[in-house]
């Protein structure tokens, strides 16, 4: 059962990664990067390291995405080219 979940998560993450690279709008790719981190924390749980899962969830998906958004905001205030 576990391998199926892992492979499913893996496929979604790969899709999100490729999406992040090819998205036109910056916002979308930032969000998809956040999604990758979120799913990664789930994988960590499965791989038996809860500490890392918590860190990845909070820092990876949470803070990194926020910082990206702040940066995007600072940059976009000028004109919205991405």
């Amino acid at each position: 059962m576990i391998p199926v979940i892992i492979i499913g998560l893996g496929v979604i993450m790969l899709a999100a990664a490729i999406a992040a690279v090819y998205f036109k709008s910056l916002l979308a790719s930032i969000i998809s990067a956040g999604v990758i981190s979120l799913l990664a924390s789930v994988i960590y749980l499965i791989l038996g390291s809860p500490d890392v899962a918590m860190t990845e969830a909070s820092i990876g998906s949470g803070l990194t995405t926020v910082i990206f958004l702040f940066a995007l905001h600072r940059v976009r205030k000028g004109k919205s080219d991405d």
């Binding site: 809860p50 918590m54 860190t55 820092i59 926020v66």
Partner: peptide, 17 residues
């Protein structure tokens, strides 16, 4: 329990955020 300084700190930071 799992988690520690880093995770706690980040949660507090998200609180402030």
């Amino acid at each position: 329990t799992p988690g520690g300084g880093f995770q706690g700190g980040v949660v507090i930071a998200s609180g402030f955020l």
